[in-house]
Amino acid sequence: MDKGVEINQSNFSKMLEWLDDDLEKAGQAYESIRIRLTKIFYARGCHTAEELADETIDRVTKKMDKLIHTYKGNPKLYFYGVAKNVFLEHTRKPVEKELPFHLKKEILDQDELEQRDECLTKCLKKLPKDENDLIINYYKGEKRKKIENRQKIMEDLDLTPQNLRIRAYRIRTKLQKCLIKCLG
């Protein structure tokens, strides 16, 4: 670890440049790495995944002066290597076991449920008809019926199961963003 090195505008800019020559693309790559590292830490069961992702990025940024000249390969994989070390250090620290979120949260009250449903109705209406139909039919039914529904969508739209899942995911993401905005 580079304990004496501070994170400043200079090494942060170098890190961005290391990721991509185009500053805008570099910014997107940075965000993408941060989100994906967070996913990895959460998947490894870390409750403080976002902090660990930031810690990983900070450590890489501190090494930029050396790295920019010595490291050959995909920068993203370097972040991953550092993330594994950050995780190992994290596992050695005594961590207070936190309760899962759903156990800490109060049950949604009727007003909130209604508000969410109202927003969801609005958001579904905002979707183009084909997307609205797809998302409704994709999640409609239970077990066998649901599988049959999805089979029919695949046949109708000539999609592979993978393509259908991705398409449903994209619509779902759009809906979630709309819902969050609607709920304020």
Partner: peptide
């Protein structure tokens, strides 16, 4: 899922979204 996966606010919000979506679609059906 409850002990290992559901450990972030973001994921909890996703569960709430999934519940809303399920409720809405079931009601519609």
């Amino acid at each position: 899922f409850e002990s290992h996966f559901l450990i972030s606010e973001e994921r909890f919000q996703k569960v709430k979204f999934a519940q809303s979506l399920r409720k809405h679609i079931d009601q519609k059906e």
